[in-house]
Design a protein around this nucleic acid. Structure first.
Length: 585
RNA sequence: GCACCCGUAGUGAAAUGGAUAUCACAACAGUCUUCGGAACUGUCGUUGGGGGUUCGAAUCCCUCCGGGUGCACCA
């Protein structure tokens, strides 16, 4: 439709002998100002030194006569063209157009899909929790964003591979194992989640004890540090059977606990990469390029990125102790991804924005070594989940674990569901879906770059601008459809008897594909979240003010069709956010 | 200190350089005979300060103020 309007205007300009210009056709913020609006008159007037309003009137009368005469454009889909404000031309679509769009939504299974990434293979890495450490709400944020972006890309024609990258070795593991030896292993009867939680506590204990002891101005190495460093060495060289046993047990428990969470969250990873396996690959790359890209400095191997870009800085890749840093493992990881899927068009990594600068340095090093990957790496950074009381750190133990947040939220939902006489299993399933929706929506409703304040008191919302509100409106539409079936009123979008009024909801549903396209091109799920809130509000308003099911009403089949179209778009939209749409709640 | 990101009602957010800056929460006032009140209808209230570019600025540029993150052997 947008293209049709643009062409119409171009033709009008040609007839009026006005030079073609760049102009925009967009949806005005307020539906009062039409369905589409253009600034063409203002742009032309500026070039010609003319009065924008007068010019707009001229263009409009030309448009009107073209619409009447042209066989190409007289589709009866435009009902009104007006000049408004400082010289805007507002275009109002006709009921015929809206009714056609409802039919399109009902009949076209591929409605809402676009071809932005058609045929492309994309790997997206997100979540990245570390075994032996808690799954905190930052991981929840990365997971929600990564999963949503993955689904949006799929809906734009891409084949997406989901990847997870986990730190299975390193000091954090030694700290957790030190804590486990101090406190003993947990009760074997504990659930997987409780065991994982226990391991997280042991990690915090070890991390706390590892810190130096402060004595006035001086500081002293803690006795635990030596022990933890010794454990760390044994983990690397697998020399201690007892430690190996604890390691294998702890690794299995935490990975299983993560897997349980992914299931609740609706993520299924295709590939798992482990840091310990990336390290030797990265080391090989660094050593092969020593003297070319990397250089020695104070015994370490570094990359002086500022030589290539003054905004970048030097980073150590291999320490003076000959240990590979995270940077080196990241090199190995990227290469390994392209080795796993050689026909990958590009590879996306999703992390918090604190990693933005260092990723730029790594990407620079990589593109010097493998120029062919330069345009195939994309880093998406998001804001941080933060507490009112400063930065969250699993080292300090002041974390809200993701598992705890999910469980508490689900409990809240269960409380509200307890009066329904559905069976327990169904209730639990719905509570899970609604709880996850509340959490995910609170993350995805805003632009990914912003930080999210997590407030213990307010927690998660279920009303108004919330995930459950979206699900509620879907469930409501669904129950209307159920009732229509019973009354034997079949949805029919193209009957002659349609309501005189065009509802707000009709004016919004046809815009869904544009919203998805924009979300895909900017990697920003929040456009979809905002759009869904708008249509949910419009539908609830329609529902509240109109009787949909009414045998005596000839327009009832159309209203049922409209309800169908809404429920289709809502379900699809929720899916793109990684949120389930329960039939009832 | 240097680099990057960010300042929008009491709170959380939205807004391709476009119109009277949008939405929710909170607060206040209504709706409860129709299909699910996790709802609907209203009221209230906002672009950190100062310059500039533009027909037009929350948006672009400069500057000041305030916040966050990163900056050599952690991940």
């Amino acid at each position: 439709m947008k293209k049709v309007i643009k062409n119409l205007i171009r033709e009008a300009l040609k007839n009026l002998n006005i030079e073609d210009v760049d102009f925009v056709v967009e949806h005005p913020e307020d539906l009062e100002n039409g369905d589409y609006s253009t600034n063409v008159a203002m742009v032309c007037a500026k070039n010609m030194g003319a009065n924008p309003k007068e010019l707009a009137e001229k263009i409009v009368s030309e448009l009107r006569s073209n619409l009447k005469n042209s066989k190409r454009f007289d589709l009866g889909e435009i009902s009104k063209i007006e000049v408004a404000g400082a010289g805007f031309i507002n275009i109002y679509l006709s009921p015929k157009f809206f009714r056609g769009s409802i039919e399109e939504i009902l009949n076209n299974k591929k409605f809402a899909q676009n071809h932005l990434f058609s045929g492309q293979k994309i790997m997206i890495e997100y979540t990245d929790p570390n075994p032996f450490k808690p799954f905190h709400i930052g991981h929840l944020m990365t997971n929600a964003i990564g999963e949503s972006v993955a689904r949006i890309l799929e809906s734009s024609g891409a084949t997406v591979f989901r990847a997870n990258y986990q730190g299975d070795v390193g000091l954090h593991v030694a700290k957790a194992i030190w804590g486990l030896r101090k406190r003993g292993l947990p009760n074997p009867d504990f659930s997987t989640a409780a065991k994982a939680n226990y391991i997280g506590e042991c990690y915090s204990l070890g991390a706390g004890e590892y810190e130096p002891i402060y004595l006035g101005d001086a500081e002293k190495e803690s006795p635990a540090k030596k022990e933890i460093d010794a454990i760390n060495k044994k983990i690397y060289d697998h020399s201690d059977k007892k430690i190996n046993a604890i390691y294998d047990w702890g690794f299995k428990v935490t990975m299983e606990a993560f897997e349980d969470l992914y299931k609740i969250l609706g993520t299924k990873f295709d590939f798992y990469f482990l840091e310990s396996q990336m390290a030797p690959i990265g080391e090989g790359i660094v050593k092969d390029n020593l003297g070319k890209v990397f250089e020695e400095s104070d015994g370490a191997i570094v990359f002086k990125a500022e030589k290539h870009d003054p905004k970048l800085h030097t980073r150590v890749f291999i320490t003076s102790q000959n240990l590979p840093m995270y940077e080196t493992k990241e090199l190995g990881l990227t290469i390994e991804k392209f080795k796993t899927k050689p026909d990958l068009d590009f590879s996306i990594v999703v992390t918090a924005n604190e990693q933005a600068d260092y990723m730029r340095v790594v990407a620079r090093a990589l593109s010097l070594i493998y120029p062919k990957y330069t345009d195939k790496m994309k880093h998406i950074t998001h804001g941080m989940m933060r507490l009112s009381s400063g930065k969250m750190s699993s080292r300090k133990g002041n974390v809200v674990t993701g598992e705890l947040l999910i469980r508490d939220t689900i409990d809240l939902v269960s409380e509200r569901l307890k009066d329904h006489d559905w069976d327990e299993e169904q209730k639990n399933k719905i509570a899970e879906q609604v709880g996850v929706a509340a959490i995910k929506y609170s993350i995805l409703k805003q632009s990914i770059s912003g930080d999210i304040m997590y407030d213990f008191e307010k927690s998660i919302s279920f009303e108004g601008d919330s995930g459950p509100y979206l699900q509620y409106s879907y469930a409501r539409a669904n129950s209307v459809i159920e009732k229509a079936k019973k009354e034997n009123i079949l949805p029919d979008p193209h009957i002659q008897d349609t309501p005189v009024e065009v509802f707000e909801i009709e004016k919004m549903l046809y815009r869904f594909p544009e919203v998805v396209l924009r979300s895909a091109s900017e990697y920003e799920p929040h456009y979809i979240a905002n759009y869904l809130i708008e249509i949910a509000r419009a539908f609830n308003s329609f529902y509240g003010n109109t009787l949909i099911i009414d045998i005596t009403d000839k327009t009832s089949p159309y209203k049922v069709a409209l309800t169908f179209a809404f429920s289709f778009v809502m379900k699809k939209g929720l899916h793109l956010l990684g949120i389930e749409a329960p039939e009832k709640m």
